[in-house]
Structures are given as C-alpha cells and as structure tokens.
C-alpha cells in the first residue's frame, strides 16, 4: 500500500478565525493527504501530543491573531522535546515579513500568508517530503 502523507492542522492560541485552517484542511484532503484536524484553542502541548499520537509528517499551524511569535516556538519546542524534530512545520495566517527570518531560524520551513493558493501548499509539502535520492 502506498504510504499516505499525514498532516495535522491546528489552531494554537485563542483566535477562532478558522476559515483558512478549514479551507486548507479540505484542500489537503482533496490532494490525497490524511488530515487530522484538531480545531481551535489548542495549546502547544496539545498540538505536539496530537502530532505524536497521529504520527504525522506535517504540522500546519494557523495563527491570525498576531500571537505567532509566542506560540509557534512553543509548539516547535514541544515537538522537539518528544523527538519530533523531523516533522515539517508550516505556518499560515497573518505573519509580518519581519517575523519570517525568526520563524525560519527555529525550523519553520513554510510560511503562507493570505492569498496563498492551496496548490502552493500541496506542492510545498510534496517537495519537502520527497525522499532524498541517496
């Protein structure tokens, strides 16, 4: 059986604007991924725990409240703490350009702002998860 790509889509923090997260979750499903949707108001610990239990390849975080610089590093820390440093972490939402380098530095590979085509995210995941040639 072909290996399925599993993606966790979560909204850390308080903000309830889940339109983007839901549209992305649905698009990823339509791209053939198995999407585990955890919904709103997730703490970093809850997200990391779900990522571990579900053994996902990708963790997608949606933050529109501006709290990304506090929340995303905490999620990343919690993932690393349980040995999941290899999981691809993506962030979507309203992320000012000036915060991008700092997020990249902690290992967030993809950052997708408003206006991103969902195919762009799908392609990005496929590219990042492609098995190395060696």
């Amino acid at each position: 059986m072909k290996r399925k790509i599993r993606v966790l889509v979560a909204k850390p923090g308080l903000d309830g604007h889940d339109r983007g997260a839901k549209v992305v979750a649905r698009s990823l499903r339509d791209a053939g991924f198995e999407v585990i949707y955890t919904g709103i108001r997730q703490t970093p610990a809850m997200i990391a725990e779900a990522a571990l239990q579900e053994d996902v390849d990708v963790v997608g975080l949606s933050v529109l409240s501006g709290a990304h610089m506090a929340l995303v590093p905490k999620v990343k820390e919690a993932l690393v703490a349980q040995g999941m440093d290899d999981v691809l972490v993506l962030v979507g939402g309203i992320i000012p350009n000036e915060d991008v380098p700092a997020l990249n530095a902690i290992g967030v590979k993809g950052i997708f702002g408003p206006g991103t085509a969902t195919q762009e995210i799908v392609d990005f995941i496929h590219k990042e998860l492609a098995e190395p040639a060696a």
């Binding site: 923090g13 308080l14 903000d15 409240s65 506090a70």
Partner: peptide
C-alpha cells in the same frame, strides 16, 4: 485583545502571547 474577548485577565496562562494583539 484576544484574552479580553475570551474573558481572561492579561496574566492568565491562556493569554500567552496574545496580549494587546488585535
């Protein structure tokens, strides 16, 4: 801000990182 909208004081643990945003 988000914590206020959710009925949390600024120093509540749930308010982490949300102070004064929005």
């Amino acid at each position: 801000d988000m914590p206020t909208l959710y009925g949390y004081d600024t120093d509540a643990p749930e308010a982490l990182g949300e102070f004064g945003k929005c």
